[in-house]
Every structure is written in structure tokens, then in C-alpha cells.
Design a protein around this nucleic acid. Structure first.
Length: 390
RNA sequence: GGAGAGAUGGCCGAGCGGUUAAUGGCAACAGACUGUAAAUCUGUCGUACUACGUACUUCAUAGGUUCGAAUCCUAUUCUCUCCA
């Protein structure tokens, strides 16, 4: 992959592109900063966009500096939603960070990565240092940030700690002497603050590489755990396959471009096929699902995912493995559904039955009081199964 | 410190003393349809039950007024605006 493609495909913006390109062409080995906030541990396909890009930089010899945001995790990233996050204990943060890194290094090369914790420099930060740092910024500057401005204009609360977040993130860049910082599109402001602070503190300002935000399975919002529209990289091949199939058809090309290595000219052909309608979108969506699973697992797992999908969704067959459920304490079918987590309440369970969404031993259940016996197969909705154990 | 506005179900947002378990939208779930868990259409969407009904618990929190309150009053907590 040449430098131009590296800086174009799957990238929304590079600041300053010419400068970065020159440095790379000169063969400089760059320190690429990637921060993460261990308030949540799960990596999903949305993160893959940037992580794959990091990997590509590593393959060209550059060094990734991963910053564990154990301090910023306590603030909560203001980008996105306004809901304040619960404060995590140090233990939780450490546990999350561990889990995160395990996932991180399935995509990024661990040997070419340096891990830094924010507490290395913030651990004994004192008030005078905080003041010195805060003194370098103005409120007007923060209100330029779209997210802040919108909330300010809409009379929505903005916590002062949210202003501190970009300051800390910027100071991180100074501490690790970052040459380049990676971030999602929505991070633009924070990334730019890093440039400014580095310059103020006598460092060469970092270049910025921004990756587009992957749209979630709902086809509308960015992929995020809190919106529930995400596909986690640790999910099972069957789950990933199914979730990929559930993205709107209009997202297929976007996913191919951002999280696969399929060459651009192939993508162009596929796009034409989709536009002309000569190929069923499902076909490409299946390819996409397999491609992603192969990256995260291997091609055998991808095949398994596909087989499972064909069986259970397309042919509506019963899956091979069905969990047993101990139903000895359950008086009726509804109770089993609630205890198994298939329904939130007895009322919901009854409704499912009324709507014809429940099958017992192959028969549609119409009477909530039907009798069941050991080994009976219970199907709820399209794809939730269990075997009754008495 | 002073003056004012506001807090409604997972989210957005109506309602301003009784046909209100609370319009509408989104999300979610089920059904139909489909070569996709896409799209589209229909339905459901506080909890429980001896169920076309009944009971209980909801409209920031705690009290109060009233035959009756999400709607009025008081206190508390939180948010926003303006003044200083």
C-alpha cells in the first residue's frame, strides 16, 4: 500500500496532510498516539476502522503509543451524548483496560506498540499544575467545539469537567511527544487542542489522522455500545454474521471500504452491480460478513457463521446446539420464558404467545397453559431456542 | 445573592384537576412477506392475575389540598435563563 492510499482509504481527514506525507516519504519513524477511554472495555467494528489503520502504519515501520485514559475515564468523553457516566473505581478501570488491550492487540501489532497510562503523569499532578494547564485555554475556544456549542445554545448542561477532558488529552500528546494522533471524526476538536498545546509547550505540533465513524446496525447512528447498534469483535462468528446481515443494504459498500482490504477497483465493480440491481445485495452482505469474521477469527469460523445463518434464518431449521434449561420451578410456559430471559415479564410472555411467536415441540402455542414435558423444544420469536429439562 | 423557567414511560415529546396507564414520533419485540436478522405492511409495547375484565404501581423526591391530581400548594434535589 503506498502512502497516498494509506492516507486516503478509510480516512476522513488528515491535518496537515502534506506535512505528514513528507515526513513519511523521508522515512521518519513516527510516534502515533492512540488514546482510549477504559470506561467501557468492548471493542466493536467501529473501532476497527482506526485500529486497522494503525496496523497499516505499523507495517510501514511506525510506532504506536497506546494511552490508557485512566484519568479521562473518570470524566467521560463529552463528544456524543450528554449523559454523565458513572464514576468507575480504579479496579474497574484496570480490569476494563486489560480486556480492552487484549482485543486491541488482536488487530494492532503488540511488538510495535508502547503502552502508557495517564496516571504515569497525572498520578501526582497537583493543583498548581492543573491551573497552569487550564490557564492555556479560554472558554470561547471550547465553545467553538460543535458539541459544546450546540448544547450551550440549547441551554443544556455542560459540566466544567468536560472542558478538562480535551486539556488532558492534549497534554497526553505533549507527554508522549506524539508525531501523529489518531481519532474518530468526532474527536477533531480534542485532536486540534493537542496540536495547539504542543506548540505552546515548544514541541512540533502533531499531525492528525481522522477516521470516519462507522454507522451502526441501525443504519442511522454511529456505532456505539450505549446505542446498542454495535457488533463486538469478541462476539461469536454466528452473532457477527447475523448482525452484519442485519445492516441496511445501503451500508454495504461503506463497510467494505472502511473495514476490509478489498481493493478499490473491486469495490467499484460491486457498487455498479448493486446500483444496477444485477446482484442481490444479500450476496455481497454475505461476503462482507465472511470477510469480517475471517479477520477476527479465521475462514473456518466464517464458514461456520454462514452455515448457521443459512440453516436457522434462511431455511428456518433448528440449530444444532440448543441450551438446556432447568424448568423444574416453572409452572407454565410463560414462567420458563421469563426465567430464561426470553421475556421481561409474564405479561410480555403471554403477549408473545398471543402473537403466535412461541412454539413448543414444533407446535405453535396458543394456550399459555399447555403442558410440556422433559426434552421439549421451546422456540421463542425467530431464533431463540431452549430445551426443557425437568 | 435576586428574578424567572423547567424536571413526564428506554429516548424525544404532548398533556396543565376527572372519558389518562398517560396523544404522537423513535427504538424494541412479534406476525406477514422476502433468495438478507435489508426493505415494506400489520400488531404489541407499566406489573400481576381467576383476564375482551380486575387489581396494583407510575409522570424528579417527600408531604399537603380535593370526592378525585402528571395537572393546584409546600419543602427538598437537580437543570437552564436573565440580573449582580
Amino acid at each position: 500500500m503506498d502512502i497516498e492510499e494509506l492516507l486516503t482509504r478509510g480516512i476522513s481527514e488528515v491535518i496537515v496532510k502534506e506535512d505528514l506525507k513528507k515526513r513519511m516519504e523521508k522515512g521518519e519513524i513516527l510516534r502515533i498516539k492512540e488514546g482510549f477511554d477504559p470506561s467501557s472495555a468492548d471493542i466493536h467494528l467501529g473501532h476497527m476502522v482506526g485500529l486497522r489503520k494503525l496496523r497499516q502504519f505499523q507495517e510501514m515501520g511506525h510506532k504506536v503509543v497506546l494511552i490508557v485514559g485512566d484519568w479521562t475515564a473518570q470524566i467521560g468523553d463529552p463528544s456524543g451524548r450528554s449523559a454523565t457516566r458513572p464514576v468507575l473505581t480504579a479496579e474497574q478501570v484496570r480490569a476494563n483496560a486489560q480486556t480492552y488491550m487484549e482485543q486491541f492487540f488482536t488487530i494492532v501489532d503488540k511488538d510495535k506498540t508502547e503502552v502508557k497510562w495517564q496516571s504515569e503523569w497525572y498520578g501526582n499532578f497537583n493543583l498548581s499544575e492543573v491551573l497552569k494547564l487550564a490557564g492555556k485555554f479560554t472558554i470561547a475556544q471550547f465553545l467553538q467545539r460543535d458539541d459544546f456549542k450546540k448544547r450551550y445554545d440549547a441551554n443544556l448542561p455542560i459540566s466544567v469537567t468536560e472542558f478538562i477532558y480535551p486539556m488532558l488529552q492534549a497534554y497526553d500528546s505533549v507527554m508522549v511527544k506524539a508525531d501523529v494522533e489518531f481519532g474518530g471524526n468526532d474527536q477533531k476538536f480534542n485532536l486540534l487542542v493537542g496540536r495547539q498545546l504542543q506548540e505552546q509547550m515548544g514541541q512540533r505540533p502533531q499531525n492528525i489522522v481522522m477516521t470516519p465513524l462507522l454507522v451502526g446496525t441501525d443504519g442511522v447512528h454511529k456505532m456505539s455500545k450505549s446505542l446498542g447498534n454495535y457488533i463486538g469483535v469478541t462476539e461469536s462468528p454466528e452473532q457477527i454474521y447475523g448482525k452484519v446481515m442485519s445492516i441496511p443494504d445501503s451500508l454495504i459498500m461503506n463497510y467494505f471500504e472502511l473495514i476490509t482490504d478489498v481493493p478499490q477497483k473491486d469495490l467499484d465493480d460491486m457498487k455498479k452491480d448493486l446500483e444496477s440491481g444485477s446482484v442481490n445485495p444479500m450476496t455481497y452482505k454475505k461476503d462482507l460478513a465472511k470477510n469480517i469474521i475471517t479477520q477476527l477469527y479465521d475462514s473456518a469460523a466464517a464458514d461456520e457463521g454462514e452455515t448457521y445463518f443459512k440453516k436457522t434464518v434462511q431455511n428456518k431449521e433448528i440449530p444444532d446446539e440448543i441450551p438446556d434449561f432447568d424448568a423444574r420451578n416453572c409452572a407454565n410456559i410463560s414462567q420458563i420464558m421469563v426465567n430464561a430471559g426470553f421475556a421481561k415479564s409474564m405479561g410480555e410472555a403471554r403477549r408473545l404467545i398471543q402473537q403466535g411467536g412461541v412454539e413448543l415441540a414444533g407446535e405453535k402455542v396458543t394456550d399459555p397453559a399447555v403442558s410440556f414435558k422433559n426434552g421439549d423444544l421451546l422456540k421463542v420469536g425467530k431464533r431463540r431456542y431452549l430445551k426443557i429439562n425437568l
